[in-house]
Design a protein around this nucleic acid. Structure first.
Lengths: 190, 190
DNA sequence: CATATTTGTTACCGATTCGTCCAAAATTCA
DNA sequence: TGAATTTTGGACGAATCGGTAACAAATATG
């Protein structure tokens, strides 16, 4: 009894996410979002609320897909070292081979929106915690990290910093040589 | 034969830098800059050109001061490990004790402006190269890095990533425990 | 003192922003 | 067919944006 929706809300949200991911919150106008989705503002506002709502939903979408995919790479089989090598190499490969220089949406949001918007800050904190847990879990796959939680915490902290830093370097356009070197050294220390 | 300037251009630029540092390029309006400096737009435009010019000059100011100060910490005396411990500990201390959660301006610029603005991208690349050189130089203070440039390059790459990642975590509001742990593990690997 | 030049202040410009409102067209189900 | 609901489209508004022009105040030099 009602006209059916002419598009898929989830793929539209994925397109919104991509727009925010590339250019950040402020530099992405509603016009940009209309162009990215092929929809009109009316439909967008009705479905996702205001621009901030779209951004937060896009961030959640990132957590449910890209971040979860990364967590899956860490949760696979193999030693702790093998798991992190998988993740870090994947990051550099997609940057170099696919030319994906968007970096990490969570990382981008941490820098340009978390400090100025409360809702974004709590979303970022929540997603960050999930990433930390995934890192911790992957380390716990091998000794001595499995039994020694203190050294595991410390190692996980450095891996977390290295991971985000790597993705900053990717977005900054750093040369492949440096990215590869960082990955090699990071996994060598596990 | 002309009226003298009623303010100090360098301190005004430092205030402009602080504003952009905190909120990024887009979220910082000319009104914000007026408030930060206590000057009127006319004086600002006359002295620094347009908003983008102010941003680029602020970025340079960061390179000449904060980044140079960090390089000085690395260029002091002591072993390579001691030098990086100095730098990394300083980062965490200023975040925790002084409550400075602005993060790294160069890192912030890499994420929110370098991908969308050419001038910013070249400035970022230039500053990033200076940081890399400083890291490489500090590593070369100790063996085996002094003689083995291959392992030095690799180690420097990870330290660079760890450094930027650490500063992202700072801006994201990460707990002191994690920051300290990352620093301990980072210097332990030197 | 007078003139020249820079600074500081106010007003204003056109463009763009996000968001709302309203009406017409489209489409499915009763 | 008619009722319900969505999409589309434009118009609109209030606010803010970056940037410019014009004018008054101040000061150094002649």
């Amino acid at each position: 009894m009602a006209r059916p929706r002419g598009f898929e809300p989830d793929t539209a949200l994925a397109q919104i996410k991509d727009a925010f991911w590339r250019r950040g919150f402020d530099a992405t106008s509603m016009q940009d979002i209309e162009a990215a989705t092929g929809l009109k503002k009316q439909s967008l506002y009705r479905l996702y609320g205001d621009k901030r709502g779209m951004y937060l939903k896009a961030l959640d979408h990132y957590g449910a897909h890209e971040a979860a995919e990364a967590a899956a790479l860490l949760a696979g089989d193999g030693s702790a070292k093998a798991r992190f090598e998988r993740l870090f190499t994947h990051v550099v490969d997609s940057a170099v081979k696919d030319g994906d220089r968007r970096g990490c949406f969570l990382c981008n949001a941490s820098i340009d929106q978390a400090p100025v918007n409360d809702d974004t800050r709590v979303s970022v904190a929540r997603l960050m915690k999930a990433v930390r847990d995934a890192f911790d879990g992957a380390l716990a796959a091998s000794e001595p990290y499995k039994s020694k939680s203190a050294v595991r915490k410390q190692k996980a902290a450095l891996l977390l910093a290295s991971y985000f830093g790597l993705r900053v370097l990717v977005r900054a356009g750093m040369d492949e040589a440096v990215l590869r070197a960082a990955v090699r050294q990071a996994v060598a220390g596990i």
